[in-house]
């Protein structure tokens, strides 16, 4: 690992001032991704500001029913929180299906949003990767692409976004609160992550001098009946091949509200707007679920190793919606 100077920020203002005033600085929270990336030589900041002592650890309900989650709340704490478990089970489940208990104990909400891809070519210094070394090419294309994206990819990058939590947040229309010396702004989660296009190294809407301070979960009554399904190569402790976050409300057999997001198949946490539009107002049947899923995956561009994801994503969407619907009718 390349040496760096280390500062522990006593308060948010100091952290923001320091990053505004200097070059090549990274904030460090749980470390589960950044420390790994630094050890691999992919990240090599000159200065690391430890933000774990900042007071961004609250989970509170605002008067309008929004839940505000501090950026330094650990993944495990968020998943265990009673409010989250009852109002947003999709989020708790997504978090619990990610990584391991040890990593969830370390990883923070803000850090999770900034996770970088697990594409093995991104991690390998000897391979070409436009995300790691812009302009070098993409060895994942034509290489081992089982983990790669079929949606949102470009000729420059097919890396998937690895977060489960973010898929649930996209489904919930969460808002990311970011702060810099210039003030606070709120970024809808859908605009937070970027597709690679021809700048795959630019992954989020976060500016170099900004800090994620919180996420806000708006009230989503339908989310009380939501779920997250993750399909992967091991029964646990593995990244998603396909994951589906979904909430469904049905009245008299017709879908009155549906929220659907996909993980493991796209270059960013993927809100399935096409499918949602087709489903809204339609009858809650397997055929309609399948038709909507097919429409969502229609633009997919697969590689030789990940063609199956198109089929798998559709099957998983149908399975999740079918189960939600059945549970709903049963209750």
């Amino acid at each position: 690992m390349k040496p760096f100077s280390y500062l522990s920020a006593p308060d948010t203002a100091t952290a923001l001032r320091t990053i505004a005033d200097s070059e090549d600085v990274k904030f460090l929270a749980g470390g589960t991704n950044l420390v790994d990336l630094m050890r691999e030589g992919i990240e090599h900041p000159a200065t690391v500001i430890d933000i774990t002592r900042l007071p961004l650890t609250g989970i509170e309900e605002l008067p309008d029913g929004t839940i505000r989650v501090g950026a330094l709340v650990t993944n495990s704490r968020l998943a265990a929180d009673p409010l989250i478990r009852t109002r947003y089970p999709v989020l708790a489940k997504a978090i619990l299906l990610g990584a391991s208990a040890q990593l969830r104990n370390m990883a923070t909400v803000g850090g999770n949003l900034l996770q970088r891809t697990r594409c093995m070519y991104f991690y390998d210094e000897a391979s070409a990767c436009n995300k790691r070394a812009p302009g070098s090419g993409c060895d994942a294309i034509g290489g081992f692409s089982r983990g790669s994206a079929v949606l949102g990819a470009s000729e420059h990058c097919i890396a998937t976004h690895p977060s489960d939590m973010a898929v649930a947040l996209v489904m919930l229309d969460a808002v990311v609160e970011v702060e810099s010396v210039h003030g606070i702004r709120h970024v809808p989660i859908a605009e937070f992550h970027r597709v690679p296009g021809d700048t795959p190294h630019i992954e989020t809407a976060l500016a170099a001098d900004e800090l994620i301070t919180a996420i806000e979960l708006p009230p989503v009554p339908a989310a009380a009946h939501s779920s997250y399904r993750k399909v992967r190569d091991r029964a646990s402790y593995a990244f998603a091949l396909v994951s589906v976050a979904a909430a469904l409300a049905v009245e008299d057999g017709r879908i009155t509200e549906v929220r659907l997001a996909l993980g493991g198949v796209a270059t960013k946490p993927w809100r399935a707007h096409i499918a949602e539009e087709l489903l809204l107002g339609a009858e809650a049947t397997d055929e309609n679920f399948a038709r909507a899923a097919a429409a969502e995956l229609a633009p997919a561009l697969p590689q030789s190793d990940n063609t199956f994801k198109i089929d798998l994503a559709q099957r998983t969407v149908v399975a999740v919606l079918r189960k939600l619907n059945a549970e709903r009718s049963a209750s």
């Binding site: 280390y6 522990s8 460090l28 749980g30 470390g31 589960t32 420390v35 790994d36 050890r39 430890d50 774990t52 495990s76 990584a99 391991s100 208990a101 040890q102 990593l103 104990n105 370390m106």
Partner: peptide, 27 residues
């Protein structure tokens, strides 16, 4: 593994289990 993928380095920090390989000592 030194990459948070095996758990052999698990220790308890304030009673919570963590992977010591991804924790900087200074933190």
């Amino acid at each position: 593994c030194d990459q948070g993928a095996c758990g052999a380095c698990t220790v308890l920090a304030d009673g919570r289990r963590i992977n010591a390989c991804l924790a900087l000592a200074v933190q």
